[in-house]
Simulated scan of single mutants.
Amino acid sequence: MPAKPLSLRDGLLALAVMAVWGSNFVVIRMGLDDLPPLLFAALRFTFVVFPAILFLKRPPVPWRNLAAYGLFIGAGQFGLLFLAMSGSITPGLASLVIQLQAFFTIGIAAAMTGEKVRPFQIAALLLAASGIGIILSHTDGSTTPLGLALVLSAALSWAIGNIVVRATPGVNMLAYVVWGSIFSAPPLYLMSLIFEGVPAIREGLANADINTAAVIAYQAIGNSLFGYAIWGWLLSRYPAATIAPMSLLVPVFGIAASALWLAEPLQDWKLGVAALVMAGLCLNVLWPRFAAIRGARTPPAA
Rank of each mutant, 00 (worst) to 15 (best):
A3W: 14
P5F: 00
L6S: 02
S7H: 01
L8A: 15
L8M: 11
G11N: 05
L12F: 06
L13E: 09
A14L: 15
A16K: 02
M18E: 07
W21P: 01
W21Q: 02
G22R: 04
G31H: 01
L32K: 04
D34W: 14
D34R: 14
P37F: 00
L39H: 04
L39G: 04
A41Y: 03
F55E: 01
K57E: 13
P60Y: 10
V61R: 03
R64P: 04
Y69E: 03
F72T: 15
G76V: 02
F78P: 01
L81N: 07
L81G: 02
F82G: 06
F82K: 07
S86A: 15
S88R: 12
I89V: 14
G92Y: 06
G92F: 07
A94C: 00
S95H: 05
Q99W: 08
Q99Y: 11
Q99D: 11
A102V: 15
A102N: 12
F103C: 03
A111Y: 07
M112V: 14
T113Y: 13
G114P: 06
K116F: 04
R118C: 09
A123H: 02
A124K: 02
A124Q: 01
L125M: 13
S130W: 08
S130T: 14
G131I: 12
G131N: 12
I132T: 12
G133Y: 06
I134G: 03
D140Y: 07
T143L: 04
T144L: 02
L146I: 14
S153M: 15
S153L: 15
S153H: 04
W158L: 04
A159G: 00
N162D: 00
R166Y: 12
T168I: 10
G170F: 06
N172W: 06
L174C: 01
A175S: 15
A175N: 10
W179N: 00
G180F: 08
S181D: 08
F183M: 07
P186F: 03
P186G: 07
P187K: 06
P187L: 10
I194M: 13
F195T: 09
E196H: 12
P199E: 11
I201H: 10
I201K: 13
L205P: 02
A206G: 13
A206H: 11
T212H: 08
T212M: 09
Y218L: 01
Q219A: 13
I221K: 09
I221V: 15
S224P: 05
L225Y: 10
F226H: 06
I230Q: 00
W231L: 08
W233G: 03
L234V: 08
L235K: 07
Y238K: 06
A240C: 05
I243Y: 00
M246H: 10
M246N: 09
L248F: 10
L249F: 12
V250L: 11
G254L: 04
G254K: 06
I255L: 15
A257C: 05
S258V: 11
A259V: 04
L262I: 11
L262V: 11
E264R: 01
W269H: 06
W269T: 00
L271S: 05
A275D: 08
L276D: 05
L276P: 07
V277G: 11
M278Q: 15
A279E: 13
V285Y: 09
F290N: 07
A291I: 13
A291F: 03
A291L: 11
A292P: 11
A296K: 14
T298Q: 15
P299N: 04
P300W: 11
